[in-house]
Simulated scan of single mutants.
Amino acid sequence: MNKLRVGVIGCGAIAQRRHLPEYLARQDVEIVAVCDFSEERANEVKERFGAKYALTSTEQLLALDEVDAVSVCTPNQFHAAVSIQAMQAGKHVLCEKPMATTIGEARAMVKAAEDNGVFLMVGHNQRLMPVHQRAKEILQSGKLGKVLSFTTTFGHSGPENWSVDGAKSWFFNKDQAFVGAMGDLGVHKADLIAWLIDDPIAEVSALVGTLHKQIPIDDNAIFLLKTNSGSIGTLTASWTYYPNEVNSTVLYCEKGTLKIGADPVYGIIVNYADGVRENIEIGKMQTNDKGGQMNSGVIDHFVEGILSGDGHEINGMEGLRALEVILAGVEAAHSGQSRKVNTAS
């Protein structure tokens, strides 16, 4: 396979601002079809990105033999069903996060990939950012010793400032979104922190609330996390960080502190216990700012994993592990008690 032929299911903001531009930028990809329940939107996106077909049903797109792989950019409620349907049709799948709304759905997705001999990747782009790749290298070097505690935060002013549908976005529909800020932003950090410190999350306590927006789901969530090896830390997800986005992680280690995305100039700052400070100017944090988009690395990873036959680091099992943390947080928030994470094997 010299060129990957792709389809995109769901033509909302994530498709228009991430998937399609990044597919279009690659010489080894052909955008064959786009699909959306809105015919007008599908046609508009088809013209803008040079697709051959604009369709209004998933079945129409998956029936195309000339499509090798699909991006699933639908509301969360449909991620599992559409992804499984695509894999049963022999298509490789890149599914947006969270990959599903239940553990059962997520496990069915992993099984569908195995049964049909296709690749399943989940769009957790945080671990592909240059700052996080470099931070992991520093941690793995052993210079800072063990991570003792941490705080990781992802917040912005809300989907109404990002979604193509504004305040009417499916993000605010509980049936379609399933959860709010914790599923939109928190799941990214759940994946990131476990990968970054190479230590799965074992236990979650949570405070979740709707603090400002008039919506039926959470606009803020704070998790207290404990890892398998005993490190503890916080994960914060918010849709009420007005006006500026915060996307940062701080790791407190035996021999110093590692700060990521906490400084406007230096992507990484390392403060060693002996007083030495290391400032690393490396790339920028990915942003949800409409005018400041950068390549997320997700499409590159997806395409290259298929064309090489090597598959993907961020596969279905990785997506399942992050989802398990979010679902444990949902249970913890409802019960007022901590919940163990049923870590995927």
Rank of each mutant, 00 (worst) to 15 (best):
A108C: 13
F223G: 03
N2C: 15
S83N: 03
Q126L: 14
Q214H: 11
G158C: 05
E278W: 05
N161Q: 08
N2S: 15
S149T: 15
G10M: 08
A63T: 03
A89D: 06
G291A: 07
P264D: 08
L139C: 06
F78H: 10
R277V: 15
G329T: 05
G267D: 02
Q140D: 14
G305C: 04
M294N: 08
K168Q: 14
N228G: 12
A42I: 06
G123E: 04
Q88Y: 03
L320V: 08
A54L: 09
P159E: 02
V93G: 01
H334M: 15
H19P: 00
F223Q: 03
M182W: 01
K143P: 02
D300G: 13
L20E: 05
P21K: 04
V298W: 00
F150K: 00
I215R: 01
H334L: 14
V330F: 02
K136P: 10
Q140N: 09
Y252E: 11
I314W: 03
R277H: 05
E40N: 14
A262H: 12
I193G: 04
L224K: 11
L196N: 02
V118S: 08
V29P: 01
L327N: 11
W170K: 03
A112N: 09
G261M: 05
C253H: 04
E203G: 05
S229T: 15
E313Q: 15
H124R: 09
A273M: 05
L251T: 02
I232A: 15
E66W: 10
P243N: 09
V270M: 09
Q293H: 10
K340V: 09
V72P: 00
R48V: 15
D263S: 12
M285K: 00
F49A: 11
L192V: 03
V32E: 00
G142S: 10
R134T: 10
N271V: 12
Q140A: 09
E324R: 15
A13V: 11
L62P: 01
D218W: 07
E324M: 15
G291I: 14
I268R: 01
L120H: 06
S83R: 04
G305L: 07
K174Q: 12
E66N: 14
Y23F: 15
M87F: 04
S149E: 13
I282T: 01
W170C: 06
V82F: 02
S71P: 09
L4D: 05
I306N: 00
S163G: 09
D115I: 09
G275H: 05
E304W: 03
L192W: 06
E44M: 12
G319Q: 08
E254L: 09
